[in-house]
Design a protein around this nucleic acid. Structure first.
Length: 548
DNA sequence: TTAGGGTTAG
């Protein structure tokens, strides 16, 4: 704890000693609160810790006001155990500490921690109030935790906390983010006073669900009612139309917002770039990025991490390197999102050792960073490295393993033919990590068993599935049957594939080739004739080369 | 105490 620092040392290192004798208690408290706010904003952990020590030494930490600032500071620096320590130091009778703690965690994006504290508050039998509910709902929305969100909605109704502008706006936002936009609209329509935040929550709700037209209709309605959209409203619309790929409307919105007195900012441009990338329009994304910088708008780490997948998609290493350099110049090169996107970019462009070098050098890594590197190794045939990295991730414990981590390691096991390892990890995923197998996990496992010639086991796994198998799962089985010449199972797999994808030529061709290999020419011809009758054609593969 | 933009698979 910081209190280990001596008073003398604290005074020597504190850059902002205040002449205590000449100030009132209030102004001293305000000054330190200001410093803590600055340190929180800049995430200056070291300086804040020293100030904390100073506050302890001088007995100022007993002030609930300063303790609240300390909690916000530690939460902002991601130091939850330190925030917790300060929280525990505030008298239990002070209800405000819950509001501060939940609010700080929620605002800093520590949503799981927010809900954990909320559950603790409930266990202590404390009632909700209008100040704490919006932060909890924000956490539910961002975690897509609809069940908890609905429970809180019931509690709001039971405790008559509705008809508060903050609570209602937060409810609209929570339902929208959980994909229940119609429920959000119900809450919205029942609001007695709809303020700008509530309008924007509803507009964003439609936009985030891809309902750009509905968002646009709502903005027109709000304008008819005499409420002027602000930059947040315009950006929500831009994000909505960008995500559905309607670039004509996006550029129209740019023009309209300028008429309204708003200049597109970094968020507006980032939404456009992100929309282009998501709609596989990489050239337009680069063009938008160029226009953004020529308009004098400085890109952020979000802009860069949205743009980098455009380089990965077409394996454009030259552009990727340029953006890497640019990110370093503007000071976002070490951001964990940017670095993760860079690891992925280098791996997808074939520079796996460059990706590994970057990965090793990173000071902070999250789940996506690890997953990208494991995928990278697996896709380049470095299966041992991929599996080794997976075990390092397990040992590291600081980051959570998710469903993609397992997809990545199963793919590696499959390529290396490590049936036993893959099988054990499939069990581990469910039993140790509580991750329910998804379709892609089953597809990997069927592929793994199939490659090893264990076709019966692969089929048994499909039969035991708790979810309906898709074309990837049956496709993996059919592919394995083709390699091992098992006509009986191939016919079963193909039957399901024909039902799932009646217009796909791939499975017909596979089965027909299998018949041909086995000398069953009659069946092969029958299939080819059926393809001709249905006018099924194979989609030719294509690849993209970029000269470096 | 509430509203806008982000990276990984097939």
């Amino acid at each position: 704890m910081p209190c280990l620092l001596t008073k003398a040392r604290v005074f020597r290192v504190l850059p902002h000693r205040i002449a205590l004798n000449h100030c009132s208690f209030q102004s001293i408290t305000d000054s330190y609160a200001n410093y803590l706010e600055i340190y929180a904003r800049d995430q200056a952990f070291h300086s804040g810790r020293i100030l904390h020590a100073y506050l302890i030494v001088n007995g100022l930490v007993r002030s609930t006001y300063l303790s609240s600032k300390l909690i916000v500071f530690y939460a902002q620096c991601g130091r939850t155990s330190d925030a917790r320590h300060v929280f525990d130091g505030i008298p239990k009778t002070n209800f405000r500490r819950w509001i501060v703690m939940i609010g700080a965690y929620s605002r800093c994006g520590l949503y799981e921690e927010t809900l954990a504290i909320f559950h603790e508050m409930q266990r202590e039998g404390l009632k909700l109030n209008i100040f704490v509910v919006p932060s909890i709902l924000k956490a539910c929305g961002n975690l897509s935790d609809r069940k908890t969100g609905e429970k809180i909605h019931s509690a709001i109704l039971r405790n008559c906390l509705d008809f508060d502008a903050f609570v209602d706006s937060a409810l609209v936002d929570m339902y929208s983010k959980c994909g229940r936009v119609e429920k959000a609209r119900l809450v919205f329509d029942r609001m007695p006073d709809i303020d700008l935040v509530a309008w924007n929550s509803m507009v964003s709700g439609y936009a985030q669900q891809g309902l750009a037209r509905e968002a646009w209709d709502l903005v027109n309605k709000m304008r008819l009612m005499g409420i002027k959209p602000n930059l947040v409203t315009w950006n929500a619309l831009i994000a909505g139309f960008s995500s559905v790929g309607d670039d004509v409307m996006v550029w129209d919105l740019f023009r309209m917002m300028r008429v309204d007195g708003f200049e597109p900012d970094m968020v507006s441009w980032t939404s456009v770039i992100s929309g282009f990338v998501q709609n596989f329009r990489n050239i337009e994304a680069f063009y938008a990025f160029k226009r953004m910088t020529s308009c004098g708008v400085l890109p952020s780490s979000v802009t860069i991490s949205s743009l980098l997948p455009a380089c990965s998609a077409v394996a454009d290493l030259r552009r990727g390197k340029e953006i890497h350099g640019y990110a370093l110049i503007i000071g976002v090169g070490k951001d964990v999102f940017v670095s993760s996107a860079l690891v992925d970019m280098y791996a997808k462009c074939g520079f796996i050792f460059e990706a590994a070098k970057l990965f090793e050098k990173m000071q902070e890594r999250n789940t996506v960073t690890w997953n990208s590197m494991i995928f990278g190794y697996g896709n380049h045939g470095y299966c041992v490295e991929a599996i080794d990295l997976f075990y390092q991730m397990v040992e590291f414990k600081a980051v959570k393993l998710d469903h993609l981590t397992f997809t990545a390691v199963f793919t590696a096991c499959s390529h290396a033919g490590l049936v036993e390892v893959g099988h054990n990890l499939f069990q581990l995923m469910q039993e140790e990590y509580g991750i329910k197998p998804r379709l892609e996990h089953y597809a990997c496992m069927v592929d793994l068993l199939g490659r090893a010639g264990k076709l019966g086991e692969a089929y048994d796994l499909i039969k035991a599935m708790l979810i309906e198998p898709d074309s990837f799962v049956w496709g993996a089985l059919l592919g394995a049957c083709r390699n091992h010449g098992n006509i009986e199972l191939a016919e079963i797999a193909a039957k399901h594939l024909f039902q799932l994808e009646p217009n796909s030529a791939g499975s017909c061709l596979l089965l027909s080739n299998l018949y041909a290999d086995a000398g069953s020419w009659g069946n092969a011809t029958k299939l080819k004739k059926m393809m001709k009758r249905k006018r099924l054609k194979r989609n030719p593969g294509c690849s993209w080369m970029e000269s470096v």
